[in-house]
Amino acid sequence: MERLTIDDMKSIELEIMDEIDRVCQAHGVQYFLGYGSLLGAVRHGGFIPWDDDMGIIMMRDQYELLMANFNEWRTTERFKLVSYRDKSSIYQFAKIVDTTTVIFENFVGKKAATGVWVDVFPLEHFSEQQGPALLKQHQRTGLLRSFAVADPSVGTNAFVKLVKRIVCPFVKNKDLYELAERLDRIALRMNAADSASTLVIDVLGEGKLEKMFSKDLLEPIRIPFEDREYFAPSGFEEYLSIQYGDWRTPPAENARPVHVMEAYRL
């Protein structure tokens, strides 16, 4: 296999995003750049220089439409939507992957490997009555899943490695697809509990009460990303402030995330 550089990965991710953009526009599915991809677009005009992945967000109804149809709508079999629902991925949210590549994440067991990807996160309508309890339930299940999928031989420090060595053997035989399904069911319950709510939240990706925001921010606009244009929420400044606080100021060099994956062309 040929080892891919970070620049190689970014080039492939742009090709995946081009396919997502093409398919979504052809079939009336609305997506938005989210998280670091949106931050990179606004602050850097593309990728955050030290980042190595991409992600989009969309309302749950649009997400389900893409989930059900992307693999039929795609223009090439090189790209594929993978999900726990057909056991093509262990993750609770969808990924669009390049099937000619494979990625091994440093802190995750090899059974989680997929191709170079773009993450797809659904947004749920937030239920003021049931929301806090559902988020706590999601966090507990998410912690269990994190230990079940973790590589116990790898950790950021000695304490983390020790905790993994103690906990991981007790959860290593957990069904990762069932755990992903359980997390998704919680998110769906949030959405069903108050589908008229004007507040939305990413349960599957973040699951944090303080990260919810007004659906009014999600009017679509096109913004530059590298030498392309993709959809972004018109309220991107408020969205980024909710997600990151002072997003305009880049972090110090010693506070920037490090590359934690190895990618190869098959």
Rank of each mutant, 00 (worst) to 15 (best):
V23D: 03
M9H: 04
I201A: 08
I90K: 07
P224V: 15
K172H: 15
N173L: 11
I166Y: 06
L266H: 10
M54S: 02
K172C: 12
M54T: 09
G142H: 08
T99K: 11
I166R: 11
G245D: 12
A158G: 01
G207D: 01
F70D: 01
T5E: 07
F70H: 02
A180V: 00
Q130I: 00
A252H: 04
R140V: 06
D7L: 06
L66V: 12
E237R: 10
R165D: 04
I48D: 15
D151Q: 06
P233W: 02
I166V: 15
L144M: 06
Q30M: 08
D21K: 05
T156Y: 09
F79P: 08
I201R: 10
R22M: 02
L188V: 15
M212P: 14
H259A: 03
P257I: 01
R265E: 07
L266P: 05
S127E: 10
S127C: 14
Q25A: 07
I221P: 08
V154W: 11
G28P: 11
T100F: 11
L176E: 11
Q62W: 11
S88M: 05
G46L: 03
G205W: 07
K174G: 05
A112L: 14
P233R: 02
T141G: 09
A133W: 13
E210F: 13
D21W: 05
T100M: 10
G34C: 01
Q30G: 05
M9F: 01
V120N: 02
N106P: 01
E64V: 14
N69S: 13
D151R: 07
Y230N: 12
S241K: 15
F126P: 04
K10I: 04
R85A: 14
F159E: 11
I20T: 03
R185S: 13
R3K: 15
V160D: 10
D194Y: 10
K110G: 03
L65G: 14
G207H: 02
L39T: 03
V149S: 13
L65T: 15
D18I: 13
T75M: 11
I90E: 02
F32C: 04
F107A: 02
L33H: 05
F236V: 04
V97P: 01
R22S: 00
